[in-house]
Computed example of a mutant assay.
Amino acid sequence: MRHRIAVVGGGPAGLTFARVLHRHGHPVAILERDPAPDARPPGGTLDLHEGMGQLALEKAGLLAEFEALSRPEGQAMRILDTDGTVLRNWHPGPDDRANPEIDRGQLRDLLLGPLDVQWGRRVTQVVPGAGDGVRVHFADGRQETFDLVIGADGAWSRTRPAVSPVTPHYTGVTSVETSLDDVDTRHPGLARLIGDGSMAVYGVNRAVVAQRNSGGHVKVHAKFRAPLDWHADLDLADVEAVRSGLLALFDGWAAPVLDLLRQGTAFVHRPLYVLPVSHTWTHVPGVTLLGDAAHLMPPLGAGANLAMLEGAELAEAIATGPGSPDEAVRAFEERMWARAGRWARITTDGLERLVSADPAEAVAHFDEVQPS
């Protein structure tokens, strides 16, 4: 029996779910609010873990293609003191593929493959128990009904209210993102400072993290503890005003580290929000959630990996399980909640230590999680 299945959101979770279902011959409607794949920048780079994101790609039949695109050298990590002293300088071994990096845009294109995405379908509401299924309302006033709706629509999910009243709350940490292009040619000194992967500098309640993407592109994140309205007297659209504010906030740090902010081309304000560590809900027939929609947590490498693995596992359960899709969803939710709760605790503790009053906590955290 064919079921009418929709996934809301064309990010890593939604596309992995759809790609695995497609591999098993099951159609799925992918409802994405963006009008086209390149409507906005796809974001930075992701490290896909062997037993999580890479396992999801294996279930989708895409692991070999991922390995050809990924950057194992991007696993390298360097930690500096605020005066520029190198505290840690870790490099992966020649055959280390535990967490290779891939640009989000490359991953999206890899997952898209033969999938037919309905671009420009902005979902405004999901209503279960609509008689003949789950009713999906769109911004253009249209409605469609499905047997199963998967909410993979991120932190501010429009699907989540169908199963849970909970909304994200601010962590107290804000990240301001900027970027450098053609870094090896235009900023060779900064290229050497960053190395092949990522570089982080930790101070009192603040940090600067730079991470290589492909093609000489670098993302830089200035992270700090502050109230949500820290920018009340600052025009976030004024690049030079934001730059000056950040340089004042990190005053006294080593000049090369500050150059990462001085050379940034634009600044994007990203306050960090999370859902409660133990977020669950009473099962609602016909609706469930994946990824950030289900368990938004600090961005410390687990979120996208969990989301992709969840998408692959749920798709497999629906496509190959002996029971109904609803039985597959019920069993899946129990597994997801237990695993996501563990990772939410790990990443919440990690954020507390990485942006803390004691910078030594950040180095200790690195030593605990980084391979020897």
Rank of each mutant, 00 (worst) to 15 (best):
L31K: 01
V86M: 10
A39R: 05
G120L: 07
D326Q: 14
A139M: 04
H137Y: 00
S356F: 07
A312P: 08
E316A: 08
L296P: 13
S244C: 09
M77S: 13
A39P: 04
F250G: 05
L272F: 10
R339V: 09
V363R: 09
V242E: 07
A226N: 10
T178N: 08
G215Y: 01
F146I: 02
L351M: 15
F138N: 03
T167G: 03
G321R: 06
D96C: 07
T280N: 02
T288E: 01
M52I: 00
V209N: 09
E313Q: 14
R262N: 10
R158G: 00
A255P: 11
W253F: 05
G141C: 03
V183Q: 05
W156Y: 13
E327S: 13
S278E: 15
L190K: 04
D147P: 03
D292Q: 11
E67I: 04
E327R: 13
G197V: 03
E352H: 15
R339T: 06
R4W: 00
V287K: 00
L296T: 08
R88A: 15
S179Y: 15
T174L: 13
G25F: 09
A39C: 10
S157P: 09
W343E: 13
V163C: 04
T347M: 12
P325E: 07
L246C: 03
Q54P: 07
R192A: 15
T347K: 06
T288L: 07
D132N: 11
K219V: 15
G321V: 02
A255C: 00
P227Y: 12
A191E: 04
E352W: 06
L300G: 04
E58T: 08
T348C: 08
T288S: 12
M77R: 14
L69H: 09
F17T: 05
T145Q: 00
H231A: 15
A155W: 02
T348N: 14
T171H: 01
S70N: 12
P128K: 02
M52F: 12
R23F: 01
S198D: 03
A364I: 03
G151C: 07
T159A: 04
L148C: 06
P168G: 01
P161W: 01
E32A: 08
F366C: 06
E316S: 13
Q370P: 00
V7A: 05
T178S: 12
L249H: 15
P35E: 13
R243G: 06
L87F: 02
G321Q: 03
V28Y: 03
Q75E: 15
I30Y: 05
G10F: 09
G51L: 13
T85I: 02
A340I: 00
V163G: 07
L63D: 02
G197M: 02
P227G: 12
D83Y: 10
I346H: 13
Q211V: 11
L236Q: 14
T124W: 01
G43H: 06
L115R: 06
E65N: 12
